[in-house]
Design a protein around this nucleic acid. Structure first.
Lengths: 215, 215
DNA sequence: CGGTAATCTAGAACAAGTTTCAGACTTGAT
DNA sequence: ATCAAGTCTGAAACTTGTTCTAGATTACCG
């Protein structure tokens, strides 16, 4: 009964924090450990994708005991989702510096997503590990996955140039995110070409014009 | 190196067939075994979702040795994707009997998908197992996943009432499928409500009007 | 500084997916 | 009916994610 075990109550275990806002403030050494772990995770993922991220190897690479790794990230999926948060933050920073240049919101969003897509293409294995973890995550990872989703939403709204989206616009953004994730999956598993992903993104971005024809 | 091992060449092993068209014709007893396995799989999945489908249990429930189970379905994901093909075929049959009644293609598609969604809601654990397997599937399962995708496409085109879709319409259908899968995932992992899934489906279905305004 | 609670380490142990193997059983062709 | 080839079985072994434990280390409080 591993499913039950997972939800079983535990004693104190601080290092598992929800997101950017540190839950329990980490000491410097702890912060360093956390960084080492995330770095090792990304490195192994870059090599061979989801399967190559083996918890024992991550622990060894980051010079941390296996038990400690599990204290910081309660499962492999948690670890990879955290890795994704990390990468997303990077990307958001990069994107901010060079905002998309399109005339319409739809163009800017699809330009932004295609830029992100090209970044992922440079590290396809890493992309594989992160995206598979994201879609495989069960309820126990919901808060973290949700955080990734919110982050993505912010990036898209940024590209649209919106501060105060209407509900209809938020629906469109959600649908764009769905398409983005799922299209990535089909590409990663070799069932769709890069060109097809591009078309799908451009197609779904037209929904934006549908919800804000005044732009 | 399990990744390599998985792709290693094997000797003869017929029962693994691609889809409906039997690759090597199965004997009656083999067909029966296959049915028993799929039935056990669906049954266990209905109880506890992805995690509850344990290969040893499936083997025991279906009165087949573990090795045989693996000869029929080379991995747990293959098994669950095959289970999904099975259920999809059912559903397609059911849908055919009561075609959607909406006036526009968009309405009919979203009506169809919502009907499928309600069916999934009746067996949320089974849905969980199938959808998680589908999105977690790696390249080794691509043919089977693709078959599921094609089947889904047929269902949607059916609902649209189209025989000969344009490329633009096919893109729209792909985007709808992306949204469908991803929205299901967010619902299954408790990050979106049923109402939200409904809205997302209706939103994406508007893309149809965009690609065939003459309908 | 001393003590105590929390944290970390090494390593064993466990769970479930997957592989392997020897021997029994089926099938299909002669 | 018989033989060869292919299948199925039961059981053990192997892999990797996850949990557990006992003892060392560290952080913090007075």
């Amino acid at each position: 009964m591993p499913a039950e075990a997972k939800t079983a109550a535990k004693a104190a275990q601080p290092p598992v924090r929800a997101a950017q806002p540190v839950n329990p403030p980490l000491t410097e050494r702890q912060e360093a450990r956390r960084r080492r772990i995330l770095h090792a995770s990304a490195q192994l993922a870059s090599r061979g994708g989801f399967d190559a991220v083996q918890m024992r190897e991550v622990a060894e690479s980051s010079q941390v005991a296996l038990g400690t790794l599990y204290r910081y990230f309660p499962s492999k999926v948690h670890l990879l989702v955290a890795t994704m948060q990390d990468q997303l933050a990077h990307m958001h920073g990069t994107l901010r510096k060079k905002p998309p240049s399109g005339d319409t919101a739809a163009e800017r969003v699809s330009e932004t997503l295609m830029r992100a897509f090209r970044a992922l293409q440079r590290e396809p294995h890493l992309a594989d590990a992160m995206v598979r973890a994201l879609t495989f995550a069960d309820r126990s990872v919901s808060p973290e996955v949700d955080q990734v989703s919110r982050q993505t939403t912010v990036i898209i709204l940024d590209a649209m140039g919106l501060d105060d989206p209407t509900p209809a616009q938020l629906s469109a953004v959600r649908v764009i995110e769905h398409t983005w994730h799922s299209a990535l999956i089909t590409w990663l598993s070799g069932r769709a070409s890069i060109a097809q992903v591009k078309i799908d993104i451009e197609t779904v971005c037209r929904l934006i014009d549908l919800t804000s024809p005044q732009d």
